[in-house]
């Protein structure tokens, strides 16, 4: 009986001390460290490109995968710039002995596409988000999560353009890179319609309709793939912005922005 009383007292003491310590000052295990910062010399692979990862916090180790899997401490540790020779997804995570591990940062490498010889815009990006000019979408440079960076073309209307190749070539698909950042009223397109031809007489139509964005979606870099699977030299592209922002968003009922960084014609 006495032993039970003593144990109970000790248990109360332990509980009190633990709780007090948590309540007074922040503990490292309560806080996550930041994601590793990634920089690549190029995300469109011609021959090879170099990828660096960093987080300047003492005691941090960075682990990564190149097969799309979630990195753990059992995966490769990052120690020096990685030479990337093939398309794929690299994922990184920072781990620290005291703090909570970081969220994942990832970067996608693409195969360099067929060069677009000319592009004629039928609608114009907003003047504040006009990128580096009319070739912004075919300059082999990706945008960041910051919509104000110069690799983004931002439209508050339907984006329309015609692409031309000097000589007909087999095009497997068109990849459209876009930003989804609902906090900045930037939504994925509602739909993409592509008309392709090699003679200017017979046109093939393809439309891809995207599923509406769900509440709580974080800012992300995304792509849409539109199948072409034909020999062509002319492509008319229409990317439709969301005409009515969903109910869950503060901008509900109004039109959304679309931001695109790159169009790639895949072999």
């Amino acid at each position: 009986m006495k032993l039970k009383v003593i144990l109970s007292l000790l248990a109360i003491l332990l509980f009190n001390c633990e709780k007090k310590s948590e309540n007074v000052f922040l503990q490292p295990g309560d806080i996550r460290i930041a994601q590793p910062r990634l920089e690549a010399t190029n995300q469109f692979i011609d021959s090879s490109t170099y990828l660096t990862a960093s987080l300047k916090l003492e005691g941090t180790k960075i682990y990564y995968t190149s097969n799309g899997a979630v990195p753990t401490q059992k995966d490769q540790e990052y120690t020096e710039p990685i030479q990337v020779k093939t398309p794929g997804v690299y994922k990184f995570k920072a781990i620290h002995p005291d703090w909570k591990e970081s969220d994942i940062s990832e970067i996608v490498f693409y195969e360099k596409g067929i060069p677009i010889d000319s592009i004629i815009w039928k609608s114009n990006p907003h003047q504040r988000y006009s990128g580096t000019g009319k070739f912004t979408l075919s300059n082999n440079k990706k945008g960041s999560l910051n919509f104000q960076d110069s690799q983004w073309l931002g439209f508050d209307t339907i984006a329309r353009a015609s692409l031309y190749l000097d000589h007909p070539e087999f095009v497997n698909s068109l990849t459209i890179g876009y930003l989804s950042d609902p906090g900045s009223w930037i939504f994925p397109p509602e739909s993409v319609t592509v008309q392709s031809t090699s003679d200017g007489i017979i046109y093939k139509d393809k439309t891809v309709v995207l599923t509406p964005l769900e509440k709580g979606s974080p800012a992300t870099l995304k792509t849409i793939q539109v199948p072409i699977e034909d020999v062509i030299n002319e492509l008319h592209v229409e990317v439709k912005n969301v005409s009515s922002i969903p109910q869950w968003h503060e901008g509900n009922g109004t039109k959304a922005w679309i931001f695109m960084d790159e169009w790639v014609l895949n072999k």
Binding site: L14, C17, E18, K20, S21, V24, F25, Q27, I31, D98
Partner: peptide, 15 residues
């Protein structure tokens, strides 16, 4: 409150 961090059974350390 004074000794809470001195207890060996608590491995907490203040950030």
């Amino acid at each position: 409150p004074l000794y809470s961090n001195a207890f060996s059974f608590s491995d907490k350390k203040d950030v």
